[in-house]
């Protein structure tokens, strides 16, 4: 019997699902509604404020975790949903879904590191 490699993706899916279930709505509210409507002082979500947040080690880790884990969560669900919808594209769907999450993870990590500490 061939051992499944799904545990790796499932753990990332679960971590992203939990993080987004705990904080997703609040994050969207802050970055997508409160900040652009200036319910927050401009400097908080302005260039200086966000740059300072992303240069802080903990802030950097948080932003990376949100972007990467949300993508792994979504990619895993979409991969299985394609199968649910009868699109049994197998390796193509797998490569596209998990590939997107992996590429975004690398891009996010590289960009965040490039911002410095």
């Amino acid at each position: 019997m061939k051992r499944s490699n799904q545990p790796v993706f499932w753990v990332l899916f679960g971590a992203g699902g939990m993080l987004s279930a705990l904080l997703g709505a609040a994050l969207v509210f802050v970055t997508g509604i409160a900040a652009p409507l200036h319910w927050l002082p401009t400097r908080t979500m302005g260039y200086e404020g966000v740059l300072a947040f992303c240069r802080n080690g903990a802030g950097k880790a948080f932003v990376f975790a949100v972007i990467s884990l949300f993508l792994w969560h979504g990619a895993h669900r979409i991969y299985h949903s394609l199968h649910d919808l009868g699109l049994h594209t197998g390796m193509v769907a797998k490569a596209a879904c998990y590939g997107l999450a992996a590429a975004a993870t690398i891009l996010a990590a590289a960009t965040l590191l490039q911002l410095g500490f």
Partner: peptide
């Protein structure tokens, strides 16, 4: 429930775009 995943991905990509724009300087982030 499963369809929410599409939107979770969309939001993560919006944030990723924000981080990339941040690295490109103040004007880009603006």
């Amino acid at each position: 429930r499963e369809a929410t995943a599409v939107f979770v991905v969309a939001y993560a990509l919006i944030l990723l775009a924000g981080v990339i724009r941040l690295s490109q300087g103040e004007a880009a982030f603006g």
